[in-house]
Design a protein around this nucleic acid. Structure first.
Lengths: 191, 191
DNA sequence: GCTAGCACTTAATCTAGATTAAGAAAAATA
DNA sequence: TATTTTTCTTAATCTAGATTAAGTGCTAGC
């Protein structure tokens, strides 16, 4: 059974026909590392579900500094929610960090699926609720914890990502410069 | 027509009977300023919709410092999403800042409404999507903008709140101390 | 109408993390 | 294999914003 159907089955129950219909509205693709799936300034037309590999979403501010919004590895969804729902140009990039197999679900097909299989409203509602909770926690952590504490939380929450993703990317997610991250890491190792 | 039904009508269309049924599952209450609707450590049992007045959600970290997660004035929803969906004790407080009329929707009634009026899945999905987008933007702003820039964005985004809410609360939302906020404000006025 | 307790201001001092710079190690590419 | 590019490290210096402290002005409760 495909990973994406397992993901759905965690929250709602589809009949075999519904499952087939869902899959028929998606398309799987392979992408090489460094491939950019979405550019800043573009309108986001798809949600991406990761079967294997690793992606990230990030923006670039005036000073040419990148900030990672999200990582997505096996079993995670990623996209530019702002652009996807408003259908306006967004300011996020989505990039492949490790060769990936990705399932694409277009905005049109997603809307169509809501009509054909209303249960999917529930599924995506729950998915969005969970993202919101995770985001709120990260926001509060950024307001109240030190860089060291944020890093510790990151390690506990995403132990597998630490192997897969460069230090620079983690620093950007945590919200510190690579130089400070390196210093902090060696300080932590000395304990 | 009540504010909450207007709010719903922005995204989905209910029949008059459905509207009545929805309202029958909610209860309106008046609360005085300083009233705590939810305490840290409690399980959040309701979503709150603000008819009038102002509320905030915040947490308190080890150092006894408060951090505002959200403000809610007329026409906004507020709650502890983590605790509400997990039904575990949360770490948010919800407090009334200005005397308020609030519509309460219990978790049970919300689940019941999803079953009786499946369209509401869509409504709350859209609501959650919008919160997520706002939260992601705020997170990125906290990572990439200076306190001054964050304050400017806040003023543009929530012009009415600046009148209603104390400087201390805004400082906490922006992510700076009241002292620094005061200094920054007088610096801005000198231009 | 007083007084205690907040909210706000100002200023001196401190610090977590940024910036700049330069070299070492690793990895991509030829 | 050699070479180019990128990541990581270390260290000196700098700064946005925190902390501490003291004073002013409101306003809510008695």
């Amino acid at each position: 059974m495909s990973l994406i159907l397992q993901n759905i089955a965690k929250h709602i129950t589809l009949t075999p026909e519904e499952e087939l219909f869902f899959i028929s509205k998606t398309e799987a693709h392979h992408f090489k590392a460094k491939c950019i799936l979405l550019n800043s300034g573009q309108i986001c037309t798809h949600s991406y579900f990761v079967n294997s590999g690793t992606l990230r979403s990030f923006n670039i501010n005036d000073n040419i500094v990148e900030h990672v919004l999200n990582f997505a590895c096996e079993g995670y969804w990623i996209g530019d929610m702002y652009s996807l729902i408003s259908q306006k140009p967004g300011n996020l990039f989505i990039e492949v960090l490790e060769d990936a197999e990705v399932v694409l679900l277009s905005k049109e097909n997603q809307e169509l699926l809501y009509i054909e299989i209303p249960k999917l409203e529930r599924f995506f509602r729950i998915l969005t609720e969970n993202s919101l909770v995770a985001n709120q926690e990260r926001l509060m952590d950024n307001l109240s914890l030190s860089a060291e504490e944020r890093f510790e939380k990151f390690c506990k929450k995403y132990p597998t990502l630490i192997q897969k993703v460069s230090q620079k990317q983690i620093a950007s997610y945590i919200g510190v410069t690579p130089e400070f991250f390196s210093k902090m890491k060696s300080r932590l190792l000395k304990r």
